[in-house]
């Protein structure tokens, strides 16, 4: 039993590479990778600075009209103003929190509903036969339009935004979970059943983890959808939030304000994206490292 050609090093090197590089030497490539990443970040920063400088120069040279297109200096001034003095609707923190709350609630509720319905319909053939046409029809509606209905039905508060975000998130997650539940390796299901798993245990222990690869891929895009839902809802009618801030800047023909709002939204979206990537790394720990999702475009 011990004398197999597939022995593994005690330090935990991968089994298929018995002569793997020992740990001390492995530090060098890692340092090189770190240096490379730092270099990349530097270049990216330089690109941003160059673009902003070019924009500002074009404005200064009167090639670009800041009334229509804004200017970096003005955007920066607006941001500073919002942070130090506050916005016309109250403190900037409150605006961010309101939008964030709507987006996160919409994201969580929409994702859970999408996963539950997707897995259920993927597992239970009869359910999918009954409901598939309805879902396809619902999916073909341009969902942003629903925002107007929700604003009228649920009012100017947080509710109408959350509902819109839920609707936007739901379909993406649903279709991925459904597909994921359908694509589960049939051998794995057969194996679990032969080992004695009930239908529910098969769903929980085999279908769900297997579908998670698909589901996580959709979650990356979904937070973006949730944010869009919250912002559009606010633009359609609200008392607070970043969407309203953008809307009132637009009403005042303050393009710098609109752009400053966009910058804040982008920061939120990127932060959420990196949190989701962290979650993904954790949940998909069992996969070989090179296939970790989200690693291709960091």
């Amino acid at each position: 039993m011990i004398d197999t050609p597939t022995r593994v090093q005690p330090d935990g090197a991968v089994a298929s590479a018995p002569g793997a590089v020992p740990t001390p030497r492995a530090a060098s490539p890692r340092r090189r990778a770190n240096r490379r990443r730092l270099g990349l970040a530097g270049v990216r920063l330089a690109v941003v600075v160059a673009l902003l400088a070019a924009w500002q120069l074009c404005v200064n040279a009167k090639i670009v009209d800041p009334f229509f297109w804004g200017e970096p200096r003005g955007v920066w001034a607006d941001l500073q103003d919002w942070v130090t003095v506050g916005t016309s609707q109250g403190s900037l923190g409150d605006q961010i929190l309101v939008t964030l709350e709507e987006a996160v609630l919409g994201f969580v509720i929409g994702s859970i509903l999408g996963i539950v319905f997707g897995i259920a319909l993927g597992r239970i053939h009869l359910l999918s036969e009954i409901f598939a046409p309805f879902l396809k029809a619902a999916n073909s509606i341009p969902r942003i339009i629903l925002g107007s209905i929700f604003t009228v039905a649920f009012g100017f508060g947080i509710q109408s935004k959350v509902v819109l975000a839920v609707v936007l998130v739901f379909f993406g997650v649903f279709f991925n979970a459904f597909q994921g539940a359908r694509e589960v390796d049939r051998n794995l299901i057969a194996n679990a059943r032969l080992l004695g798993a009930s239908r529910w245990r098969v769903t929980r222990d085999v279908v769900l983890p297997s579908a998670f690869t698909w589901i996580l891929a959709s979650l990356h895009i979904s937070f973006g959808f949730a944010l869009i839902g919250a912002l559009v809802g606010e633009i359609l009618g609200a008392n607070q939030g970043l969407g309203l801030l953008i809307r009132s800047s637009q009403n005042n023909f303050d393009m710098n304000g609109v752009l400053a709002g966009m910058v804040l939204v982008a920061v939120i979206a990127l932060t959420a994206e990196s949190l989701i990537t962290l979650l993904e790394r954790r949940l998909l720990r069992w996969r070989p490292p090179q296939t970790h999702g989200g690693a291709a475009i960091e």
Partner: peptide, 15 residues
């Protein structure tokens, strides 16, 4: 479930 089955392809649970 009194039957054991070893599959041709890997059927251990990768997660």
């Amino acid at each position: 479930t009194g039957t054991g089955f070893v599959f041709q392809q890997d059927a251990v649970f990768p997660w």
